[in-house]
Design a protein around this nucleic acid. Sequence first.
DNA 1: TTCCTCTTTTGGACTAGTCCAGCTCCAGAA
DNA 2: TTCTGGAGCTGGACTAGTCCAAAAGAGGAA
Lengths: 239, 239
Amino acid sequence: MREEAPRTVTAICRALEEQIGHGLLAPGSKLPAERKLSELFDTTRITLREALGQLEAQGLIYREERRGWFVSPPRVAYNPLVRSHFHAMVGEQGRVPATDVLSARLQPASADICDVLGLPALSRVIQIRRARRIDGRLVLYVEHYLNPAYFPGILDFDLTRSLTELYASEYGIHYGRVRFDMVPTALQPEAAAALRVAAGSPALRITRINRDQHGRIIDCDLEFWRHDAIHVQVEVPEG
Amino acid sequence: MREEAPRTVTAICRALEEQIGHGLLAPGSKLPAERKLSELFDTTRITLREALGQLEAQGLIYREERRGWFVSPPRVAYNPLVRSHFHAMVGEQGRVPATDVLSARLQPASADICDVLGLPALSRVIQIRRARRIDGRLVLYVEHYLNPAYFPGILDFDLTRSLTELYASEYGIHYGRVRFDMVPTALQPEAAAALRVAAGSPALRITRINRDQHGRIIDCDLEFWRHDAIHVQVEVPEG
DNA sequence: TTCCTCTTTTGGACTAGTCCAGCTCCAGAA
DNA sequence: TTCTGGAGCTGGACTAGTCCAAAAGAGGAA
């Protein structure tokens, strides 16, 4: 009953949306090759790719660099008010978490980091870079910056573990006030490389500034989430 | 000192980023026409548009349907924990808010809405559709769904005002618990039309389920924000 | 079985255009 | 002075390809 002219891109989108919605294409499954699809829909690869790009923006499908297009799995709930950490959060939702440590070292702090952590000029910080997976899929790239004064020797521990737990068990430090800042943006080159996606893919950047039980700023995190991997949930209690 | 091959798209992005970053292109100002730019960078319009698309994904520029590309103004902070409303929030940040009412009526409730508001099957709801601006720019499309039992005659009031204020002053109803759900996605056709942007532009969809001081679910909102218009800020107090 | 190499397939990046519809804006009419 | 019609400009949508590099898979050697 639709009267509107079925422009090709939207027509392709609708067709694929329908297939995915009806479960004919299961989450995680691979779509046919772009050339195949463009043939199937009787159009050019450029047009087809435009349609795929829109579905990617919606979060219905995602791509892996030079590997192909896949149907996005359900999003995981991210609740900033609940004091949790990646492994616990993902596990509680019936999914399988995993962590890769990309690098971990003491290095000169950038001006931004000095500012955020309240360090004097020309300080050093501990930087830990990690990539995290849900059910095997790379979904999160994080850079942690720790004030080295509070965490001597932390680089010698197993950093695939939760830092939250490490802080508690080894240093007696617990999170106090936390400040989140979330902005929808695109993956910057480093993050894109780590997640093995095209630079410029849509993403949600979450910056955390963490204080301990005494109100001291202990570290800050720079998280880049694949935009289709999470939804942020906030339950505000009666004011 | 960069060794990587300067692929055209990223080269264009870098050039424009630099111009914008150094303030040569002021927020709100219009970029030259696509054809002009493609000539300037000595490339095709398709390639040029790909680059513009990436900058759009980053939130640096935005487009107005058939009018051109513009430099994005700074983002406004959105804090779900602070009980505020659009006009107050925008005004406090030194920006100028405005609201257009697109439609307001009593209509049959969809199954989803019945479910969320806890209404019996085949109920009616009050639907209010509004578009909101910051400094003149359309940035937010909202659909409000109110339980009609709590708001008799509300359609006769000036609905460009804040509903929060209307609830308080006319019905003695105040917000209690509120549940937010935010998901990065693309604008659906209705929202895109209202904001006068291409359907499928990146967006942040925020769903709110609002309770009053007695814990009753009084209404729910479906907000579509231009993804480059806000950043979400959450300050979590010591747990 | 394991490892390595070569071939094929696939996505990434780009060129060079066409046709169309909505927006702007200016000139001319009322 | 105000309104309006139309030309020109601008983005939107699409066609029809090419070249390249990385990934996947097949096949053979150790």
